[in-house]
Amino acid sequence: MFTGIIEDIGIVTDLKAEFDNLHITVRSKITSELKIDQSIAHNGVCLTVVSIENDTYTVTAIKETLDKTSLSHLEVGNHVNLERAMKLGDRLDGHIVQGHVDQTATCISIKEENGSWVFTFKYDSSLNNITIEKGSITVNGTSLTVVNSKRDTFSVAIIPYTFEHTNFNTFKEGTVVNLEFDVLGKYVAKLVELNS
């Protein structure tokens, strides 16, 4: 479980394909605090640390993960949002995040608004995921509040701190991101579907 509060921005230093898997090596200032078999969210995708060397560590994404997330778009030098799993007893500053990406979305608009930014994303609504005004959404692992919720688009307002401390500052129109919809909303949507 995660909170959607990003701890560090890692830098992808190596990508190695092995059969259908992708080994992703990341340099991060939190590497020295990691251990093998630990879960870390990478742009919102929960992956397991499989090796550690100096200031880098490696995780492996399987085909299922690559097919359903934006990790297949990674290139050496890309920045990734990182968050370690939450500890029991800590404050839940974001919202409950599982690290299980529901689908991807594409950034279709970025507007600078006098000290903040509004990012708008488009996603495939046929997968029955929904957003609601003032509801929670996770974009590349970052816990955010939805504004301008529509059937297949939504926006989020980004404050300067979030812009500077996540990989939102690398987004352009066309950037593909990972979405994890609010778990409570997913259960409600499923119940409505079952009772229709």
Rank of each mutant, 00 (worst) to 15 (best):
N148W: 09
V146Q: 10
I158Q: 04
F168N: 03
A157G: 14
F163G: 03
F163R: 05
V156Q: 09
N167A: 04
T162C: 14
K150L: 09
T166Y: 04
S149A: 15
F168D: 01
F168Y: 07
H165N: 15
N148R: 07
D152Y: 00
N167Q: 07
H165R: 11
E164A: 10
S149D: 14
F168W: 06
I159L: 08
E173C: 07
G174L: 03
F168R: 00
V146D: 14
E173T: 10
K172L: 08
E164P: 01
F163I: 06
V147C: 14
I159C: 06
S155N: 04
S149I: 11
V147W: 14
K150M: 09
R151T: 15
E164N: 11
A157S: 15
R151K: 12
D152M: 01
K172R: 10
D152F: 00
T170A: 00
N148S: 13
K172P: 03
Y161W: 08
V156W: 12
F171W: 14
N169C: 12
T145H: 03
F171P: 00
L144A: 08
T170N: 05
D152C: 04
T145D: 06
N167S: 09
V147Q: 12
F171V: 05
D152Q: 01
K172A: 07
F154H: 05
T162D: 14
T170R: 06
K172V: 13
T162H: 08
K150R: 10
K172W: 09
P160A: 09
F154Q: 04
T166P: 00
S155H: 06
T153E: 15
S155Y: 08
N148P: 06
G174F: 00
K150N: 10
T170E: 10
T153W: 06
Y161C: 02
K150V: 03
T170P: 00
G174P: 00
I158W: 05
T166A: 02
F163N: 09
